[in-house]
Every structure is written in C-alpha cells, then in structure tokens.
Amino acid sequence: MWEYTDKVQEHFLHPHNVGEIEKPSGTGDVGSLACGDALKLTLKINKDDIITEAKFKTFGCASAIASSSVLTDMVTGMSVDEAAKITNEDIASALGGLPKEKMHCSVMGREALEAAIADYRGQVLPMAQGEIVCECFGVTDLEIIRAIKESSLRSVEEITNFTKAGGGCGKCEDKLREILQQTVSGKESAVPVNVKLKPKRMTSLQKIKKIEEVLEREIRPGLRKDGGDIELIDVDGDFVIVSLRGACKSCHKSQTTIKEYVEKKLRELVLESLIVEEEN
C-alpha cells in the first residue's frame, strides 16, 4: 500500500473544483487512457490576466486526482505569469509530498497547467517538440532533460518515477542513461535547444489516441446503426488490432468491414502505413 499524506487523502476523497468550465480561457489536456492517467484542466482568466477559476477532470489514481485538485486551488487568484512558474515540486509539496513512484502525477499537473496557459496565450508548447525517447509513454528528450534539471534526478529509476519514461518495455533505458549523463555533466547545453526542435514522429500513444478519435467519430456511428460496435485492442507499430462487437461479430462480412471500411478510414485520417487486423 502507498503511503499517502493526510493532505493527499483529503484531496482525493473530497476533491476541489471538479468539472469543466464552459467556454474556458485556456484548456490543458494531457495523458491518455492507455497511459493510465489523464487530466483535463480548464481555466477562466480575466482581462487583468488573473486566473479567476480553475476546474479539472482526472482519470487516474489517488495521487493524480489529489495533484489535480490541489493545483486548481493553487492557481486560483494567481496571475498567469505567477502560475507559469509553478513546478511539479510545488504541487508535490502542497500535498505534503508524494511517494517517489508517484511523482509523475505532479508532473502531469504541471504539464496540464503549461498546456492551458499556452492555449490561452496562443502559443505552441516547447515540450511537445523534441524527440521521442520513450515510445511507450510518448516522452520526449526535452521533457526528460527538464525533469532531470528541475528535480535533480540522478538515476534512470528516478527519471521513470518522474516522467514515466522507461516504465513500459524498458528498451529506452540506455538512451535515458545517456541523456542523464549528458545533462548532469552539462554537455547537452552546448547544443542550442532550438536546433533540436524538429517535427515529432507519431508515438504509439499519439497513434492510439488518434485512432480512438477516428473510431469514435467516423466509424462507430455507422456500425452502431447496424447493431454492431468496434473496440480497439492494441496498437503494435503499424498493426492496429481491433475487435468487432455485437452484430458485427457474427457478420460474415466482418473482414470486408475491417479492410474496406476501418482500415481505409484510419489510413486516410491517421497514418498511411496502418494495417488493421481483427483480433483472433
């Protein structure tokens, strides 16, 4: 069992500011269902640049919910500039600390806040640039470097605790170690950050998210009309594994549905190289 502070317990059991502001001044949407945690933060900001209201919706564990709740309390009444300075460490200490394995929950709060402020200011997030290092959780080198510096991280394990990078298949561990060494020795600063800004490849997670969106918007309504449904089972590289449900399941035309309809749509709207297969 995790050791949660009273403050975490309190914010988890009785969270503040749950919901979604209608017509928000800024929205920050981070994480995904596949990751196991996601946060949608909406802010109301007045003409003097003061955050007058903050609301959240969170899918995740106790510390994710508590981090979101305490964050909305913290930013309410702050100027946007002040809020922009909040770090994940600030969020964690407002909760009286988080277990080290759960620090990524506070990082998610900070990321949502940054995204909401960038949305308000009409800016593009710098962290969304950079190069993907951890494909399982879609973490970029810039995010990792920032976490190492901000939280004085000294091991790959700590990087995983704070950013989730390396927490899936573990294939990026060597790369993480390399980034850690370079960052700690100060070498990476020799490369100007903007040189590294190149368009991001699509990560598995972005792919999953995009595919889910297209399934929901373009494909499900048609299938449901016929009493069927489709479920996304897995995305493995370019292979999209789906399962047909309801009337579609027993339909002899299911293979045609998948290839002619689902695959075509996903190739058109997500990625040309996708191959859709039915789960056996």
Binding site: L33, G36, G60, E101, C136, F137, E231, I241, E279
Partner: peptide, 20 residues
C-alpha cells in the same frame, strides 16, 4: 498499473486483450 508499482496494467488482462 498504479496498484502494482509498475506503470502498465496487469499482464494477464493485456494477454486477454482487455481494452485499456
């Protein structure tokens, strides 16, 4: 995922193809 200390949900449910 969160209960196990790992970052991924149960290998049993994933092997069964239970959606995320």
């Amino acid at each position: 995922a969160c209960t196990s200390g790992s970052l991924e949900p149960s290998h049993v449910l994933r092997a069964m193809g239970v959606p995320f």
